[in-house]
Design a protein around this nucleic acid. Structure first.
Length: 635
RNA sequence: GCUACUGUGGCUCAGCUGGUAGAGCAGCUGAUUCGUAAUCAGCAGGUCGCCGGUUCGAAUCCGGCCAGUAGCUCCA
């Protein structure tokens, strides 16, 4: 019989041939590297029997799907090993995740990190045995019986959730059988490089009301070298950890006295202020006005905005002169009040109103993490009030501004568009106009974006920006959200050309998202080596002996007068020692000044990351560093 | 919040199976005035996260609390 290959070629194979046999006919190499197959577009095992006219594509470890199959088999090997060691444990689910896999298990005895080595050894045994993995199918009723017989209560629950008439597939390797959709590797011997990395608690089906199971995480790669590279990357990420660097570089502090409320130290404050200055300058140029609304506002306002009913658990409340008040968790209600302060004409729109607003939210204690998740943070918020026909251009404007800001740090980013969810407010027509405007803005700018169907906020569609940092991790930062709710709740209006009152369209938008979080991301992105314009100390001056301290102070004064953040290391220490410290502080420019420099009016320039040293005239250096700082050079 | 782990001077860490704290760095003092990643010496600094229990005796064992870290979305 004949089958069709991916490239359109026809291949003749024996009747009843499997995908593996077909692969062998194509080439020995392909047969060796095959892990699964795609028949008529559907992923299946290599043992799958082909039919006349089937379209066949062999999947290898180079394919994302192939890698998933590989990792999924790892999860099964883990499960088998666990069953061998702990016969009474119950298996829940064991899916593939980025870089690896996990399995959720209900143990009768607690297990610890120390047990992982033992489990790995057992897994190695299973892999060495090259046990064939076989698929079989059962009708639902029999599948239930089988799992009940094995005492797998979670599997039973999973099968019960499947439709009555479904045929359930299982995979069997040696004495171990697991409920699974598949596909899997043909045998366990194909696994080459894996490691169990951690243990964590995880709720059955992700619901905190359910029992907490033990989750064992593993990573797996086709080659040992890739596994090692993965751990090298983790090491690198660990070195960049913003909590560690934040302490070393004296940027911020997290104290018991303020759980989730970061303290900004002088260096971190310089960083924060520099970011805010940069932000403010760009926003002014883009036609934004800036406001500041109070931190504490009355209960009536929060009732009006809906937060008192829907967000109260996350709000800090207080009583002032016997009146209930709340600390703002969001800036919008304050912004609405400002809009309402005076009547607006259609001629005033769009009105772009920005606010660097500090908000407080009571995040659950376990959610807190360094600057990434705090209970008090500054949003670079802005509310834009506009006419319906202005939506598209305003969105384009925000994206344009976002580009300017992100590119300053060398970030690439991805865009996601989220559309109307099920329980949402606003008319079908409003949603369509808004969603279409968002799409049109992205399309006109030629931006690629992913659509998250039904993932918008209940009050409007949104665009999210996901940054990619220097070691490939992504972070959600910026967001543009249309809001049909706030203008209605606050009864916002403007007078149109027709003399009638109309409701403006409003968007919330943020680019940094949270300044605190963004700073955390920047620390890790740059590994603490901030570009010149951001560096808390831009230039450090090191006199070789006390004789040149006077000259060092003069150099510092001139740089400071030129607007450069600089300092002199006045201590009576050897130059090598001072150099070492300045380098550890990751200062972009270190100037060494001794008798020679003092006499010639020069400085010896040591640039961060550059081996060669350069002696130049002081005025020349000042000009250069001022220019470079103003250019906000990336990296 | 839940599960696991962690919590010793400003920082990094040692302290084995309970006998009542130790180092390096930083700091201070003195000497040294030195040319590109740690000069030498001395001094000072901790009721071992907090509270309670067991014990003749607890940093060490037990319980509670507080704080930190990892994970808790990815459906067989």
């Amino acid at each position: 019989m004949e089958i069709i290959l991916k490239n359109g070629d026809k291949l003749s194979v024996d009747g009843g041939a499997t995908c593996a046999q077909a692969a062998a006919k194509i080439s020995d190499g392909l047969a060796r590297n095959a892990v699964a197959a795609k028949v008529n577009g559907a992923l299946c095992d290599l043992a799958h029997v082909l039919k006349e006219g089937d379209e066949l594509e062999i999947v290898t470890l180079k394919d994302k799907e192939g890698l998933d199959v590989y990792r999924h088999t790892c999860a099964h090997v883990l499960a088998q090993a666990l069953k061998n060691i702990y016969p009474t444990c119950s298996l829940a689910i064991g899916p593939v995740i980025e870089n690896g896999f996990y399995y959720d298990i209900d143990f009768n005895t607690p297990i610890t990190m120390d047990d992982l080595a033992k489990i790995e050894t057992e897994m190695q045994k299973i892999i060495k045995a090259k046990t064939p993995i076989e698929r079989f199918e059962l009708p639902r009723a029999e599948a239930l019986k089988l799992m009940q017989k094995y005492g797998e209560k979670y599997k039973v629950e999973l099968i019960n959730d499947l439709p009555e008439d479904s045929v359930i597939s299982f995979y069997k390797q040696g004495s171990f059988t697991d409920l699974c959709r598949g596909p899997h590797l043909p045998n366990t011997g194909k696994i080459k490089a894996f490691k169990l990395v951690s243990i964590a608690g995880a709720y059955w089906r992700g619901n905190e009301k359910n029992k907490m199971l033990t989750r064992i995480y593993g990573v797996a790669f086709p080659k040992k070298e890739e596994l090692e590279a993965h751990f090298t990357m983790l090491e690198e990420a660990k070195k960049r950890d913003h909590i560690k660097l934040g302490k070393e570089l004296k940027l911020f502090a997290l104290l018991n006295e303020g759980k989730g409320f970061p303290f900004f130290l002088p260096n971190g404050m310089t960083l924060k202020n520099t970011l805010v200055d940069f932000w403010r300058e760009l926003h002014r140029k883009e036609g934004y006005v800036e406001i500041q609304t109070p931190i504490i506002l009355t209960r009536t306002l929060w009732e009006n905005s809906g937060h008192w009913d829907h967000y109260k658990d996350n709000m800090y409340t207080t009583v002032i002169d016997e009146e209930d008040c709340a600390v703002k968790p969001m800036n919008c209600p304050g912004g609405m009040l400002v809009y309402k302060l005076s009547p607006h004409s259609y001629k005033d729109l769009p009105l772009r109103m920005a606010e660097m607003g500090m908000v407080h939210r009571h995040e659950k204690s376990g959610q807190l993490h360094g600057l990434f998740r705090v209970r008090c943070f500054t949003q670079d918020d802005a509310h834009i009030f506009m006419l319906p026909e202005q939506i598209k251009d305003e969105i384009k404007g925000v994206i344009h501004l976002t580009d300017k800001i992100y590119s300053q740090f060398g970030f690439k980013y991805k865009i996601e568009l989220s559309t109307r969810p099920e329980n949402s407010m606003g008319s079908e027509e409003d949603w369509n106009i808004a969603t279409d405007a968002l799409k049109a803005a992205l399309d006109e700018l030629g931006r690629a974006y992913e659509i998250n169907e039904g993932d918008g906020a209940f009050y409007g569609p949104k665009i999210d920006f996901h940054l990619e940092d220097s070691i490939g991790r992504t972070w959600q930062c910026g967001t543009i959200q249309l809001d049909f709710q706030m203008p209605q709740r606050f009864d916002l209006e403007y007078v149109g050309e027709d003399g009638q009152k109309h409701r403006p369209i409003m968007i919330h938008r943020a680019i940094f998202g949270s300044i605190e979080r963004f700073i955390g991301i920047l620390i890790e992105h740059f590994a603490g080596k901030f570009p010149l314009w951001l560096a808390p100390t831009q230039v450090k001056i090191l006199p070789i002996t006390d004789r040149t301290l006077g000259y060092a102070n003069e150099v510092c004064k001139q740089l400071a007068d030129a607007g450069i953040r600089c300092e002199v290391d006045k201590r009576n220490e050897k130059i090598g020692y001072k150099i070492r410290e300045a380098k550890m502080e990751k200062v972009p420019y270190v100037l060494v000044v001794g008798d020679k420099e003092a006499e010639d009016g020069t400085v010896n320039v040591n640039k961060r990351g550059v081996e060669e040293k350069d002696t130049v005239k002081l005025d020349k250096f000042i000009k250069k560093v001022v220019k470079e700082s103003a250019e906000k050079v990336i990296f």
